[in-house]
């Protein structure tokens, strides 16, 4: 009987491995994974990878163009942009990720509750969610910053709050679809409790949606936090945050375009890497394909 208990797990890990192989077969996903991994390495090993101290100023180097020493040039205070971009990974990645996790946990819990309980409670709450979705999320985030005040931590909270309605709505939808499954009705008919149905039948069924939603929104979270910093509402100078760097570089764009090239490119690459991964992930574990596989 041990084999009976073991084999499903083995089967699942086998399908995970084959899924991973299937996932990486796609050139875009492979490129995205490599780029994202590179940024993660940058974030972890920034002090060793960056050739200069990101906040070390050098008047002689002010707005210096890219050369053999300062690869990406220098900013108005003569700081090495390459080093600052590497340190910037320490801001955008964790901040984006934290935002996502907070938003997903709160929004997901709401969504599961709404979808599962249904009825009048769901009807009213869904109305409120529709209203909140009406605010462009960046405006909603700005509104939260207006309440909490300027700063990077507040930006995390603001963007997370702004994402909650979207997560809640999508996950509520997924729960509603999962609830429609005949096997859920079968379980209820045989007397299964709500908790049993929730944990054995509904949560596993919505997991693919949650994973895809999370990955596809990580890019958005990184973008939104950087945007708020760019608008001067998030990370404050001299922090080497990519959005904030772009904000301080914009005045000198005419004479020193390199001040905006590297941070923008880094931000773009990080976001597109995450999006490539999310896109492929949604293809490989599309809930609609789940039955066939």
């Amino acid at each position: 009987m041990t084999t009976l208990a073991l084999s499903p797990a083995r089967l699942r890990s086998a399908s995970f491995l084959s899924g991973l192989r299937e996932f990486l077969k796609h050139p875009g996903a492979l490129a995205g994974t490599i780029v994202l991994a590179a940024f993660v390495v940058c974030a972890i090993f920034a002090p060793w990878l960056a050739p200069f101290d990101p906040s070390e100023t050098d008047i002689g180097m002010r707005l210096g163009p890219p050369d053999a020493i300062t690869w990406f040039g220098a900013d108005i205070h003569g700081r090495d942009i390459f080093s600052r971009v590497i340190w910037g990974a320490r801001y955008s990645l964790p901040v984006g990720f934290a935002t996502l996790v907070v938003g997903l946990i709160i929004g997901g819990t709401f969504g599961v509750m709404l979808g599962y309980i249904g009825g009048r409670f769901d009807a009213i709450a869904s109305r409120i969610i529709d209203v909140l979705l009406g605010f462009p999320s960046i405006v909603l985030a700005i509104m939260v910053v207006a309440v909490l005040g300027v700063g990077l931590v507040n930006v995390v909270v603001a963007v997370a709050i702004a994402e909650i309605p979207r997560f809640a709505r999508v996950i509520r939808g997924a729960v509603l679809v999962a609830k429609q499954n005949l096997y859920v009705e079968a379980a209820l008919a045989m007397g299964a409790s709500s908790t049993r149905v929730m944990f054995l039948h509904i949560l596993p069924a919505i997991m693919p949606t949650v994973i895809v939603l999370g990955t596809l929104n990580l890019g958005n979270a990184i973008l939104s936090t950087a945007t708020l910093s760019f608008l001067g509402l998030g990370a404050q100078p001299p922090a080497p945050e990519w959005g904030a760097m772009l904000n301080s570089g914009r005045e000198y764009m005419r004479y020193a375009p390199w001040t905006m090239m590297a941070p923008g490119l880094a931000l773009f690459l990080a976001v597109i890497a995450v999006n490539l991964i999310g896109d492929r992930l949604s293809e490989v574990i599309d809930p609609r394909n789940a039955r066939r596989r």
Binding site: Y183, E185, A187, L200, H201, P204, A290
Partner: peptide
């Protein structure tokens, strides 16, 4: 097919 959970043995 629909009345058995495809994710369980």
């Amino acid at each position: 097919m629909a009345s058995i959970n495809p994710r369980r043995t």
